[in-house]
Design a protein around this nucleic acid. Structure first.
Lengths: 239, 239
DNA sequence: CGCCACCTTGAGTTTACTCAAGTTTTGTGG
DNA sequence: CCACAAAACTTGAGTAAACTCAAGGTGGCG
C-alpha cells in the first residue's frame, strides 16, 4: 500500500491540505484504488505530447516535470513547472494542451480518466490543484508581461525558496544572523530562459551579474547558494 | 426565473457544455437557488480588489470583466478577460489574487461561497471553467513569453473572432467570397497594452501598421473591421 | 463649441536579442 | 584516474525591437 502514501511536505503551490492520496487511503472509490499505479520518468523523458489523447491524470510523487508549448518555428515557452504533490494532465477537451517532460528523475501516480470522474474526493483534490495552479499562472503572467530580466531571474530564484517571497513570506528570521540558502535549479539555462521568456544568454548574464554583486554563489551550474534571501527578494519587483 | 437562464452561445473558453445556470434550473441544491442573485457593474467599476476576502464567486451573464494585478511601482498586468458564460472569483486561499474590474456594462450572477461548496453540480461547472481558463492562460503565457508585438496584437484580434484561430478553427468558408468581420475591442489602447505586455504606443503603432497594410479598418477606435481573417491569423505566429 | 480623455506619431534611448568565440562541466572509455 | 568529446555555459560586440519622452491629433459629450 505504499503506493498510496508519500510525504505530506508537498509544494506550497498545492497549499496546506493533505494530498489526494492520503485522503484516498480512507475513502476513495474502489475503482480509483484498483486503477492506481505508479510510473517512472528519466530526466528529459516525455510523458505526453501536446495533442495526445488526454485520458489520464498524474500526481508528482517525486521529481520535477515541465509543461511547455511550441510555436511552429520552434520557439518554446515553458508554461508551468509541476513539483511534488502537484498534478498534471488536466484537460477540458479530450487532448492535452501542452507537452509534459521530466526535468529530473520523476515518480508519478497515474489515475485513469474514468476513475477520476467518478470520485468526488478526487474531483475535490483536483480542484485544489487547479486553483493553486491558476494563482501561479497569474503571477507568472505578471512576470512575463511586466518584469525586467533581473526581476524575472530573482523571482525565479525566490520561487525555489520555500515560504519566502510569495504570499506567505515569513521574512528573514529575526534572531538568526544568516538568511542564506542553497537551491537546486534542476533546469538548464535554456530551460530557465524558456520559462522566463528570455534567451539563454540573458539568463546567463543576469546570473553572472548577481554573482559579481556578491548576491549568489554558483556551484556546478545547477546549484545556487543565495547569500541573503532578502536581497534577492528586493530584486523581484514585488517589494 | 429569467435570472437562471441566458443564451447558450457562451464564449468558446467555456466549451460546449451548457452553463451551470441552465443545469441548476433543474437540479441545483435549494441553497444555491435561494442564494442566487444578480449584480450590475458600470464600465470601470471594480467588483473586488486583490487581497479582499474571497467569499463569493460570479458568473458573467453579459458584459466583459478584466482581472489584473499591480506591482508596487504601478505597473499593471491584465491576466485574464472574463466573458459571457465564464466565471471569476475563484480562490484557493481566502483572498482574491487579482482585482476584478468591469470593462463594459456588466451583469453578474452572484454565488455565495457556502452554497458553492455544498453543490456538486456547481463544483462541476466551476471545474469546467477552471480547465478552460487554464488553457487560455497557457496560450497567453506563450504570447507574453515568445511573441513579437505584431504577433501579440494579431493573436488578440483573432481571440475576438469566434471559432477562428483557436483550437477549433474552421478556416475560411470555402464558398464565401469574403472572410471579413467587425470586432468590438471593449478595451482602451492602454488596457490592450496591459493585457499584451506592451506599451500603449507600441499597440497603437502596430494597429496603424495593420491599417497601412490594408489588413484592417479602424472604426471609432473601439471597433475594428478585419478585412480578411486569414491574413490576420497568419500573423499570430501560430501558422 | 470647447474641453477632456484617448489616441497617434516622431525622435532618441535602452534592454534584451543575435551571432560568434571561448570556457567550464559532464559523461565515457581507456 | 585521466583523456577526450560533447554538452552546457559564459562573455563580447553589434543590432534590433520595443520603450520613453514629447508633441500633436481625434472624437465624444456637456
Amino acid at each position: 500500500m505504499d503506493n498510496l502514501t508519500y510525504s505530506q511536505a508537498s509544494s506550497k503551490t498545492v497549499g496546506n491540505e493533505t494530498s489526494f492520496n492520503e485522503e484516498s487511503m480512507h475513502s476513495a472509490a474502489p475503482s480509483v484504488k484498483n486503477g492506481a499505479r505508479k510510473q517512472q520518468l528519466k530526466p528529459h523523458e516525455v510523458l505526453f505530447f501536446e495533442g495526445d489523447k488526454a485520458d489520464k491524470i498524474y500526481e508528482v510523487i517525486s521529481g520535477v516535470v515541465m509543461l511547455y508549448k511550441l510555436l511552429p518555428d520552434g520557439r518554446r515557452q515553458i508554461v508551468y513547472i509541476v513539483r511534488e504533490g502537484d498534478m498534471l494532465g488536466f484537460s477540458q477537451r479530450d487532448i492535452f494542451d501542452c507537452t509534459a517532460e521530466a526535468l529530473t528523475k520523476t515518480e508519478l501516480q497515474v489515475y485513469e480518466g474514468r476513475d477520476v470522474s467518478t470520485s468526488p474526493l478526487m474531483q475535490h483534490y483536483i480542484n485544489r490543484c487547479l486553483l493553486s495552479q491558476m494563482e501561479s499562472l497569474h503571477e507568472h503572467t505578471v512576470l512575463l508581461g511586466r518584469k525586467s530580466a533581473m526581476e524575472r531571474v530573482a523571482t525565479f530564484l525566490m520561487g525555489l525558496v520555500p515560504n519566502r517571497g510569495g504570499v506567505g513570506c515569513t521574512g528573514p528570521s529575526k534572531e538568526a544572523g544568516t538568511d542564506d540558502r542553497t537551491v537546486m535549479l534542476s533546469m538548464t539555462r535554456q530551460e530557465i530562459a524558456d520559462y522566463l521568456g528570455l534567451t539563454i544568454e540573458t539568463v546567463s548574464r543576469v546570473i553572472s551579474q548577481m554573482k559579481r554583486k556578491g548576491l549568489i554563489k554558483v556551484e556546478k551550474h545547477d546549484s545556487i547558494h543565495i547569500l541573503n534571501i532578502c536581497n534577492i527578494c528586493q530584486l523581484t519587483g514585488m517589494h
